[in-house]
Nucleic acid binder design. Structure first.
Lengths: 256, 256
DNA sequence: AGGCCTGCATATGTCTGACGTTACCATCGG
DNA sequence: CCGATGGTAACGTCAGACATATGCAGGCCT
């Protein structure tokens, strides 16, 4: 008999701990995180495990290991913010910061209208199915958003809707971006659905976007995507004009 | 005295070796790479070093480690192709494949016109300086492209030109993309400069792009960026219409 | 006095050997 | 026929030691 009592728990992730500390603002670029042996002691874990986790932060571009000196937090510009793991940490540990939310929204305002436009040109029937299914899920979970579970389901459909549009561009990089943005989108979606300023309007804006893609109207899709994000911004009480990234992108004035 | 004779060489990188094997097509998704102990023996290196390197491939999304079974190559769609390390491996080990070149070009055709358009709206005077300096470098190294060194310098300026435009969008993500695309751009640039189909024309297209950004003409910048890339495609003998990603993006027909 | 060199302390990098855990598989017994 | 049992192979973790790189302080020489 193996006396394996009370030990089904996995070992603590040092990467997770340090990510929380760093993204939470307890360490800044240039600072040194605790040395390996301190982390070993602190978490009652072996040095190889600590080193394995630190390697993850190195690969994410967050820390730099200096032989014989320590592990230094790198400049923000060095971080691999297009890594899914990094955006995940970002949304989980740095999300309360409204500046971060503004940055995320500003980026989505830069990218998603263009993605929608491209999707409108290339979407196949199969892509439309995915978009439509997600949209129907949105509608179904709109009314009965009572319990926590229902709201989570609604957020899931919202994400699926946006992801399906990314995929419809048939471009590997846009598709990857949708994975990377997933946690960020989830953050904005769940927060904006809490303060839900008229979910009916939001649904209608999503429908407009879907229809524009279906009817192969790139310009309309561009504008509809902007409208969807504007609705999100409004629900969050964010004025995107205050973004440090500059104003959002406008379509060159056109005559259809 | 420490008898440190003839040992300034760094240890072989297992990650590098495996990347070459995998990107070169010797291993396919689903295959298992050699086990840790075999790699230890093969490179006369310790297991911890091997594990450290394998961790890098895991973080890049290229392999998946199955406890008690082995290290499996993941599906291409799982790879973190927006990781600078991955694109570097891609261009160094998978570049001879013309399909890869087509994919890269197709992506750049999707992104760069839009980036140029955004840059035309947001570029500051400081951004213009960077763009112009790179452009002047292009012109200077155009004539005397005699030796290898000169050609390399020319390629560097070409990259700097494109990077400066990415930065001029003042969007963190586009700026990161420029880092990530760096090796890919270098590949295309250096190859197209070899088969240089009229470098004068290429220079003129770059000038048009720069001027459009300077004069804040987003539409012209969009078209100029397309023209630059079309020139590259032509020099490489690539018909982008044959891309598996679909045809390139057109601007909605507008009247300025 | 100033500069270079040496030696020490510290932290990361690597090596060695062992044990634990998990997945696969073949064999055995109901 | 099928499920349980044990063995084997591979990855995961542990423990301790040595090797190497960095930074600093003190001493020697110019």
């Amino acid at each position: 008999m193996t006396l394996s009592l009370s030990k089904p728990l996995t070992r603590p992730s040092i990467a997770e701990y340090l990510a929380e500390e760093i993204f939470g603002g307890n360490y800044h670029p240039g600072d040194f995180v605790p040395r390996e042996l301190d982390l070993c002691e602190r978490f009652a874990i072996n040095r190889s495990a600590v080193r394995s986790d630190l390697r993850q932060l190195v690969d994410a571009g967050i820390i730099e290991r200096i032989s014989g000196h320590g592990s230094k937090v790198r400049e923000y510009s060095e971080w691999h913010i297009l890594d899914a793991q990094v955006t995940d940490w970002l949304t989980r540990y740095a999300a309360p910061n409204p500046d971060i939310q503004r940055e995320i929204l500003a980026f989505r305002l830069d990218v998603e209208p263009y993605v929608a436009m491209t999707a409108a040109k290339r979407a196949t029937a199969r892509d439309l199915v995915a978009i439509e299914e997600a949209f129907e899920g949105l509608g179904q979970n709109l009314r009965n958003a009572t319990c926590e579970e229902e709201r989570r389901l609604h957020s899931e459909c919202d994400i699926a809707f946006h992801e399906a549009i990314f995929k419809a561009t048939h471009n590997i990089v846009w598709a990857q971006l949708s994975h990377i943005l997933r946690p960020s989108i989830y953050l904005l979606v769940s927060m904006s659905n809490q303060s839900a300023s008229d979910p009916e309007d939001s649904l209608e804006r999503h429908r407009q976007l879907m229809e524009s893609i279906r009817l192969r109207r790139p310009r309309d899709a561009f504008l509809a995507a902007q409208a969807v994000l504007a609705g999100t911004a409004e629900a969050l009480g964010l004025e995107h004009s205050a973004s440090s990234l500059g104003r959002s992108v406008e379509l060159p004035h056109t005559a259809p």
